[in-house]
């Protein structure tokens, strides 16, 4: 579904550029839930940004459904890929109602049956139509993240890029959103590429995880191996140790 091959990216800076992704190789299968874990600055979000078209000028190959994304327009790409961001407070337009927020992707694509699609997306994320006339500031953090997820699924994408979707939420709300993501994954046969710094969250949702450090993937581990501590790289071991010692 997603094939990333020897992806490298240099962040242009004043005078000199800095390499933030180095020779990344990741293959995500259809319907898979794949995680990227690492500490701040390890480059995990940068991979999502390359996929989403926010970073340009990367080297290597990224193919989605067998087609190189260098050859697809942003508009075309948005039909197959959507993104959910970390901060539900910053991701929704503060002066747009929920109706307008959900209507916008439909209007851009010129799709028919808007009201019906909005209704279905809201229902899928566990909200009802009473939310439509409201503004984001009238919603709780968890409800906002639900709206952001509804906006992501309203175009029926195959892939959702999740950038720390629960790290700005309280633990009780995090549990609700993780449950929602798991059930959507199942019901809509979505493919997830999820970034998180929290191994517990990653292992809860993802079948495989790429561990990142300083712009490189040091190891790709299956969930079972992660839980049993079957990891080879020192860095993964130390991350695991920290995660286990906190439980």
């Amino acid at each position: 579904m997603i094939a990333i091959e020897s992806l490298s990216f240099d962040m242009p800076g004043a005078g000199k550029s800095k390499r933030i992704l180095n020779d990344i190789n990741i293959h995500v299968g259809r319907g898979e839930c794949f995680g990227l874990v690492g500490e701040s600055g390890s480059g995990k979000t940068s991979i999502l940004k390359c996929l989403a078209g926010q970073f340009k000028g990367w080297e290597g190959g990224i193919a989605v459904q067998g087609k190189s994304i260098a050859d697809t327009s942003l508009k075309e790409r948005s039909n197959t890929m959507q993104m959910v961001f970390q901060d539900p407070y910053g991701a929704l337009h503060p002066r747009h109602t929920i109706r307008k927020i959900l209507n916008e992707p439909l209007a851009i694509k010129g799709l028919p049956d808007k009201a019906e699609r909005i209704h279905k997306a809201l229902k899928d994320v566990g909200l009802d139509e009473s939310f439509l006339p409201r503004y984001p500031h009238q919603l709780s953090g968890g409800q906002r993240q639900r709206v952001a997820i509804a906006r992501a699924i309203i175009l029926d994408p195959d892939i959702i890029l999740l950038d720390e979707p629960t790290s700005a939420l309280d633990v009780s709300v995090q549990a609700e959103i993780l449950n929602l993501l798991a059930s959507l994954h199942h019901r809509r046969q979505l493919t997830y590429l999820m970034v998180s710094h929290d191994l517990g969250v990653i292992a809860h949702l993802c079948e495989r995880v790429a561990v990142m450090k300083a712009g490189e993937v040091v190891e790709v581990v299956a969930r079972e191996d992660l839980i049993e501590g079957n990891v080879t790289h020192n860095y993964t071991q130390s991350l695991l140790q920290h995660a286990f010692s906190r439980e």
Binding site: V171, S172, A175, E176, N179, D198, G200, F244, E247
Partner: peptide, 15 residues
């Protein structure tokens, strides 16, 4: 409600 590495549950309990 915390996801756990040691005891993974398919659905997290919601309060």
């Amino acid at each position: 409600s915390l996801p756990s590495l040691r005891h993974r549950r398919d659905v997290l309990p919601v309060m």
